[in-house]
Simulated assay, not measured.
Amino acid sequence: MNMIELLKEVGRGKRGARDLNYAEAEVAAELIMTGSATPAQMGAFFTAERIKMESVDELEAFVNVCRKYSHRFPMQGGIDFAGPYDGRKSSFMATFATAFLLASNGIPVTMHGSTPLPPKWGVTLPLLLQEMGVTSADMTHETAIHAAKQTGVLFVVSEQWCAPLRELRPIREELGLRTVLNTTEKLMDYGSSPYIVFGVFHNTVFDKTAKVMQKLNYRRALIVQGSEGSEDLFIDRPTRTYLFANGEVSLQVIDPEMYGLDSVVPEHNWTPAEQLRVSEEVLQGTAPTAFSNQVLLNGAVRLFVAGRVDSIEEGLYTCKPLLENGRAWELYCHWREAMLSKEIKTGVGTSETRSRL
Rank of each mutant, 00 (worst) to 15 (best):
I4T: 15
E9R: 15
D19M: 10
N21H: 05
Y22V: 04
E24A: 14
A28I: 12
M33K: 03
S36I: 08
P39Y: 07
M42F: 07
A44E: 14
F45P: 01
F46P: 07
S55M: 04
V63Q: 10
V65C: 09
P74D: 02
M75I: 06
G77N: 13
G77H: 01
G77V: 02
D80K: 05
G83F: 02
T95C: 03
A99Y: 00
S104I: 07
N105S: 15
V109Q: 03
G113K: 01
S114F: 03
L117W: 00
K120V: 13
K120I: 12
G122N: 07
P126M: 00
M139T: 06
I145E: 14
H146R: 13
A147T: 10
V156G: 05
A163Y: 12
P164R: 01
L165I: 14
R169F: 00
P170H: 10
P170N: 09
L181W: 06
T184W: 02
L187V: 06
D189L: 08
G191S: 10
G191Q: 09
G199Y: 02
F201I: 09
Q225M: 11
G226A: 03
S227I: 04
L233F: 14
R237N: 09
P238A: 13
T239W: 03
T241G: 10
F244K: 02
F244I: 02
A245R: 08
G247M: 05
S250V: 13
S250F: 01
L251T: 09
Q252E: 13
Y259K: 07
V265Y: 11
P266T: 12
W270T: 07
T271V: 09
A273E: 15
A273N: 01
A273L: 07
S279M: 08
Q284R: 15
T286C: 06
A290E: 00
L297W: 00
L297D: 01
N298K: 07
A300H: 12
F304S: 04
F304T: 01
D310L: 11
I312E: 00
L322H: 13
L322Y: 10
E324C: 05
R327F: 00
R336S: 12
A338F: 05
E343R: 13
I344V: 15
S355D: 07
